[in-house]
Design a protein around this nucleic acid. Structure first.
Lengths: 236, 236
DNA sequence: TGAGATGTGTCGCGCCCTCGACACCCAGTT
DNA sequence: AACTGGGTGTCGAGGGCGCGACACATCTCA
């Protein structure tokens, strides 16, 4: 909880008092242990989640080894908000990547709130648009940019969400997220470590030179940040 | 116009009579010449479009040569519907790829209709979700699948939208859409032609063996189709 | 008919990354 | 102390594609 007495999720914080009252009775704080599954593609949703901290990885892909991360989201976002407003069937898998907590809301309560309040609905829609922008940029980045820049981007996003420079991550999971072989990650990570930008060992990656990491990354990160900032500032 | 007396856009056709009345006074049929720009990233929208035929390519990318197609849409979709419901700033460029016509609506009228009718709003949101699914699948496809399969997918989609087996397309534009070099397209196209699956010459590509083309493509196409069908069937 | 513009084939070099495989190192367990 | 298992380095073969460049074909227009 924060000074406002609300859970520390950016979207909950932005809500009008009246809108927050709509949700409040239905908010349940839950633990997100690593690898907790929040939603599964093509399966009916039961809850919508407002993460407080940690990070959730949104992925698609039919089979193991053929999956790819669409976006990494956290306290600046909602899990499954768009699908909840649409037909309640999740488009993608959502899995806790870094542990944390979240406020869960039953999907019916979420839909009721969205039906009752145009302002709340607008916020969810703008959020969904921001998420779309994220996916779009990932599309461009994955298609056109080399693994090194993409890895830098990814780490920066993880840092943004967790505010921690040390992240519990294996090269293997990194490779899965980015849709490349562990091989490639190993090579690039080694290079970044040699340059003094990151340090890692046995499932812990630490950012040691944030500026250099930003220089290594492509401008996809900042493009996404700009969209997010614009869309989630309440209109006048 | 069709038997229903409505423009031949799938979404307009699906509308409740009352909802259609909301839009009808504001619908203006326009020509979409090839390369007509319908929206531009980061620029305020003026209209929302319901394509009747032809196809519109949604692309992102900061600079020339660094752009990539997010989705190709047509009569089964809306151009800029999501952005209109959000903050009215387009996320991406939208350009007419194949000529055709569309119904244009001023953004304010579109928003008013969405505010007035929960059913219309729901349809737009579900559509936007379908578009998101499309983008997601492109992300996966571009990251993991070889150019040959992607090209096949792309042609199938173009065929779906235009119902024509002959498409006015240069290898150059194909390469731009797919985010690869013309070189790669030339190679693959040559191969497909040799196999009797397509035929082409000077900016005209013709599908000669649809089944073989489907066999060449990855299952991304069908995955997207499934999502689209599910989301755009009116809920009970 | 000739000049230019546009679309296509193709060649070579080289890089990035895949794919499979194996060895090593470190932790926790027994 | 030995074992086991997960995380990492890395090697070699090979492919796919970037990247530049050039030749050639066809179309359009002067």
């Amino acid at each position: 909880m924060t000074a406002s007495g609300r859970p520390p999720n950016q979207l909950l914080q932005m809500l009008d008092a009246a809108d927050f009252e709509l949700l409040l009775p239905h908010l349940v704080t839950i633990e997100l242990a690593r690898a907790t599954v929040l939603s599964e593609a093509d399966v009916a949703l039961r809850h919508v989640y407002f993460p407080h901290d940690g990070a959730v990885s949104i992925t698609v892909g039919p089979s193991e080894g053929q999956t790819i991360e669409v976006a990494m989201i956290g306290r600046d976002s909602i899990v499954a908000g768009g699908a909840a407003l649409a037909d309640g069937i999740a488009l993608s898998d959502a899995v806790a990547l870094f542990p944390g907590t979240a406020s869960a809301v039953e999907i019916s309560a979420f839909r009721n709130a969205a039906a009752a309040s145009a302002r709340f609905r607008g916020l969810v829609i703008r959020h969904e648009q921001a998420l779309f922008a994220r996916a779009q940029q990932s599309l461009l980045c994955n298609t056109l940019h080399p693994v090194e820049a993409r890895l830098a981007c990814w780490l920066l996003r993880a840092y943004d969400l967790s505010n921690k420079k040390a992240l519990p991550l294996t090269q293997d999971t990194l490779a899965q997220m980015m849709g490349v072989r562990r091989n490639a990650v190993s090579l690039v990570a080694h290079e970044l470590q040699r340059a003094g930008i990151i340090r890692y060992s046995r499932g812990q990656i630490e950012i040691t030179d944030l500026c250099a990491l930003e220089a290594t990354s492509c401008d996809c990160c900042s493009a996404v940040r700009a969209h997010h900032a614009r869309l989630l500032r309440l209109p006048p």
